[in-house]
């Protein structure tokens, strides 16, 4: 386990990140490429957060996009009301200069709101599991979407916008590729947190739940507590990805967080393999790029992609990585990052 290599890795990554930001700042990277990078970041957060519950804890949550929606709406509402001039609320409540500092805070607040919404699944999960819990998650996804559809103050089914103005406001204070910076930072942060959680004896409690819940409970793991933490943690991170997504696109509507979005998350997690963090990251990257590459096919895209996935499942029925990490396949990588 080379401390030296790890340091090199971190410094190298930092330089790369800095270079990316500088290039983006001076418009040397195409805006389209930038947006693809941002989508990759959002999807990494979305997929890895879902892998906590579906990969590590072994439950089958199919309504993850619902929490993304909560985070997206809460943070968008906050930024737009606080920092933009609105016909109804009048002047901006806070000056644009503060938006630079408050933006990440608001994204995290969106995450916390989504984490609290996670209770909708966490509490039923004490008594229910497997397919029954899966149904509850679907129902929760539908409930969140239909509730948003009926809320007129966020535009109902027409959607909600104004987040672009916030970003322009931030850029007006100081020119900087804010969204690129924050998306990548939050993505790294997320993977980092999940890794810390899952490698601790505390966090391994949820892996014990996946493998044998009865044994876990009798061997002193407080399973209800662990489920509560896992569901809230997972949905909270989904909320963060939602907040970032909303500010990248500049527009949200309830339809963008339908079961289809949840399905995308499931695809990324199971394509990776249940319980592989680096797998989830890789499959989030691959999946986003695939979506972009197939864009010219228009509607056929959504015929081809599922077909590809069906084929992948036929040849690798345990997902691309199984429950292995990248470093299990390439042991030399262990020098650069530690996983297990």
């Amino acid at each position: 386990m080379g401390k030296y290599q790890q340091k090199t890795m971190m410094i190298g990554g930092g330089i790369l990140f800095g270079l990316l930001l500088i290039l983006a700042h001076f418009k040397m990277i195409d805006l389209y490429v930038q947006s693809v990078i941002m989508f990759i970041g959002v999807n990494i957060i979305f997929a890895t957060s879902l892998s906590i519950v579906n990969g590590y804890m072994g439950e089958f949550s199919c309504g993850h996009a619902g929490f993304m929606a909560v985070g997206a709406y809460v943070s968008s509402l906050l930024t737009v009301v606080l920092f933009t001039v609105d016909k109804e609320t009048g002047l901006a409540i806070l000056p644009a200069s503060m938006s630079i500092y408050l933006f990440p805070v608001i994204i995290i607040i969106g995450g916390i709101a989504a984490g609290i919404a996670g209770l909708l699944i966490a509490i039923p999960s004490f008594k229910t599991r497997d397919d029954y819990l899966a149904i509850i998650t679907i129902a929760v996804n539908f409930i969140i979407i239909t509730a948003l559809n009926n809320m007129d103050f966020v535009g109902g089914s027409r959607g909600y916008m104004g987040m672009k103005k916030v970003i322009y406001g931030m850029e007006g204070v100081m020119k900087f590729p804010y969204m690129l910076f924050w998306v990548i930072t939050f993505a790294i942060f997320t993977v980092f947190l999940i890794r810390r959680f899952i490698t601790s004896t505390y966090g391994k409690g949820i892996i014990a739940i996946k493998q044998d819940e009865v044994a876990a409970e009798i061997m002193s793991v407080d399973t209800n507590h662990m489920k509560l933490v896992a569901f809230m943690f997972s949905s909270g991170l989904a909320g963060i990805s939602g907040g970032l997504f909303a500010h990248v696109i500049g527009y949200v509507n309830p339809g963008s967080f339908s079961i289809l979005k949840s399905t995308e998350g499931l695809v990324m997690v199971y394509l990776a393999g249940m319980g592989s963090l680096s797998g989830s990251v890789i499959s989030a990257i691959l999946f986003t790029i695939l979506l972009e590459l197939l864009r010219p096919l228009q509607i056929f895209k959504w015929v081809i992609i599922p077909l590809i996935l069906i084929l992948v499942m036929q040849f690798r029925p345990e997902g691309l990585m199984g429950d292995k990490e990248l470093s299990d396949y390439f042991p030399k990588l262990k020098k650069f990052y530690k996983f297990k």
Binding site: S200, T201, Y202, A208, Q211, A215, V221, D323
Partner: peptide, 26 residues
Amino acid sequence: WHDMTVLDNIRLSQHYHLGYSVFEPF
């Protein structure tokens, strides 16, 4: 827990007195 090492199996049954709070692993 069959897909966890023997060491982790032993470790996990000390889950009730880990000695640190929820936030400390992070």
